[in-house]
């Protein structure tokens, strides 16, 4: 679904991400684990096409998008849930959702992606998060952390993506909300969406992920099934647990 090969990111003279290779299958989730400053966010932004200093191959559903600007990658099925549940604070909740609204990209409708055929609309997002429906005319800037996180996920869904890139969606949220995000992510996987999750919170991540990749100093140092990662030496070493 998403295939990244040899991604390198440089900021000016400093090299931040080195030869990143990763694959996210449809309906699967890859957790990208590492400390602050390991290069997780930079990797996501590089894949999304948001960094001019990124080089390497990125393919979505087999189509090479390496030379495409960010908005075309988004249109072809990549969605982003940024860290801190960033949203457009001066727009209403409804506008935040509308802005990403897009019909299902690549209408070839391969069986795996259209297992739950109907596409996402504002109404379906409100069904999923009734709270957002109540707040639809409110400015997003006034939402609580948890509500903003729902909005960020809802906005990503509105583009009917093939792959969602999530950057620390549990950061700063109360445990109850973290759990509901965990459940949501599991549900999303069921619909055939691929998920790339960058996290420091390995407990949540490893419970819902299929595979885990460990990042240190801009490189992926190890990759393995999530179940095995929970007790791995590399988890202990990198995240210090």
């Amino acid at each position: 679904m998403l295939k990244v090969a040899g991604l390198n990111v440089r900021y000016g003279k400093s090299h931040v991400v080195f030869d990143l290779d990763l694959t996210v299958e449809s309906g699967q989730m890859l957790a990208l684990l590492g400390r602050n400053g390991a290069g997780k966010t930079t990797s996501l932004m590089g894949i999304l096409g948001l960094l001019p200093g990124a080089q390497g191959r990125v393919a979505i559903d087999g189509a090479d998008v390496s030379r495409w600007p960010a908005h075309r990658r988004a249109q072809s099925g990549l969605a982003y849930v940024p860290s801190g549940a960033r949203c457009f604070p001066n727009l209403t909740v409804a506008e935040n959702l509308e802005i990403a609204a897009r019909r299902r990209a690549g209408s070839n409708g391969s069986s795996s992606t259209s297992s739950r055929g109907t596409s996402w609309t504002k109404e379906r997002v409100y069904e999923l998060f009734p709270k957002l429906g109540e707040l639809q005319a409110n400015m997003a800037g006034g939402l609580s952390g948890g509500e903003r996180q729902m909005l960020a996920v809802g906005r990503a869904l509105m583009s009917n993506p093939k792959v969602i890139l999530m950057d620390e969606p549990t950061e700063g949220l109360a445990p109850v909300i973290v759990q509901s995000i965990g459940r949501l992510v599991l549900e999303l996987k069921q619909t055939g969406v691929g998920i790339l999750l960058a996290e420091q919170n390995h407990q949540m991540a490893l419970k819902v992920a299929d595979r885990a990749a460990f990042m240190e100093k801009g490189r992926i140092v190890d990759e393995m099934p999530a179940a095995r990662a929970i007790n791995s030496e590399v988890l202990h070493r990198i995240l210090g647990v």
Binding site: P69, A70, A74, A79, R86, C87, F88, N90, R155, S159
Partner: peptide, 19 residues
């Protein structure tokens, strides 16, 4: 709407599929 969105976060806007 897109202009107002760009005011607050143009990066997020392009990641949302807007040129």
């Amino acid at each position: 709407r897109n202009i107002r969105a760009a005011v607050s976060d143009s990066e997020l806007l392009s990641a949302s599929g807007v040129n």
